[in-house]
């Protein structure tokens, strides 16, 4: 298991390198004069030169890259142009909100998806099967930020049950926090719920056609004991593998959902930085989010290796 972990960590290094390189290059591809964007169109050439020097943009690209990596290895992602904070601080203080939103959405997506998938599989070829698969496919096909707006206009504007947006920290009021996270998490979960439902269904159908299930049934075990004790347990293993991919989609989706609901997470930070041309924040936010995703994937792989010994010995 330790060897497996070491191999997995090692293989993450080149990925992280590419991630950091892309984050560095993001500023370089901005067309025109970045400093004019930062200082505003009415800035003087002297002001721009000052900014250029302060940010090291007057240096050759290679030197800038060396400096970027030198700082990066010390955990320094630079200063925000506008926030009067270091990038690392700004991103890390908002990361918990994004992570908790993604985590709640993940739990919701898996629970609802597995439920729909089981329903479809045990009532195979019935209207229940078609109904749940239609819901799953519909979930896969709608834009989540649009679904978020629909949820807002129904449950917040129309019925007034939940707030239209804004964030209440859990430390302030647990109920307020839950109320502020409900709609965002639902909106975020809908797409991945579809993915899970479809996977659960096909995986259940496959497992239920296997010999040991027939044996269990033949020896007189009750149908739902077979389904929940024997079939489901094995059918859910593949779901673990997609949790990694799903986390990525959810983290990415959170960026948009956060700005719809005005939740102060990393996504909203990045979108705000895009509007205000605060490039270090864009860079740092991108880098830290991607690194988080890589880390989550390692955890998922470990979990999978623990569940299925073939995986950890296979490589």
């Amino acid at each position: 298991m330790i060897g497996f972990l070491a191999r997995r960590l090692l293989s993450a290094l080149p990925v992280l390198f590419v991630v950091s390189l892309v984050s560095f290059v993001i500023i370089a591809i901005v067309p025109g004069d970045v400093t004019a964007e930062i200082a505003g169109s009415d800035s003087t050439e002297a002001q721009r030169a000052e900014i250029r020097e302060r940010l090291g943009l007057d240096r050759p690209m290679v030197e800038q890259a060396v400096r970027w990596y030198g700082r990066l290895l010390q955990g320094d992602l630079g200063q925000s142009y506008l926030l009067n904070k270091s990038v690392t601080e700004a991103v890390l203080e908002r990361l918990p909100i994004t992570l908790s939103l993604a985590a709640i959405a993940l739990v919701l997506a898996v629970m609802l998806g597995v439920l729909l998938g089981i329903l479809a599989a045990i009532k195979h070829d019935s209207w229940l099967d078609q109904g749940s698969m239609s819901i799953a496919l519909f979930g896969l096909s709608i834009p989540d930020f649009w679904f978020a707006l629909i949820l807002i206009s129904v449950f917040a504007v129309g019925l007034g049950w939940l707030p239209t947006g804004g964030y209440v920290p859990a430390s302030e009021s647990l109920i307020g926090w839950a109320r502020s996270m409900t709609l965002p998490a639902l909106a975020l979960a809908i797409t991945q719920m579809g993915v899970v439902a479809r996977m659960t269904r096909s995986s259940m159908l496959e497992v239920m056609s296997q010999d040991y299930i027939r044996t269990a049934r033949a020896k007189g075990m009750r149908r739902h004991t077979v389904i929940f004790k024997h079939a489901l347990r094995n059918a859910l293993v593949p779901i673990v593998t997609v949790v990694g991919v799903m986390t990525g989609v959810l983290l990415g989706g959170a960026v948009v959902i956060e700005s719809v609901f005005s939740l102060p997470g990393v996504g909203r930070l990045i979108i705000g930085a895009i509007q205000r041309r605060d490039y270090p924040i864009i860079q740092g936010g991108l880098l830290i989010t991607a690194a988080t995703f890589v880390f989550v994937n390692i955890l998922v792989d470990l979990a999978y290796g623990w569940l299925d010994p073939r995986v950890r010995d296979g490589r």
Partner: peptide, 11 residues
Amino acid sequence: DGLMAFPGVLL
């Protein structure tokens, strides 16, 4: 792999 490490449409 590196490009795919950026979650969702963030990149």
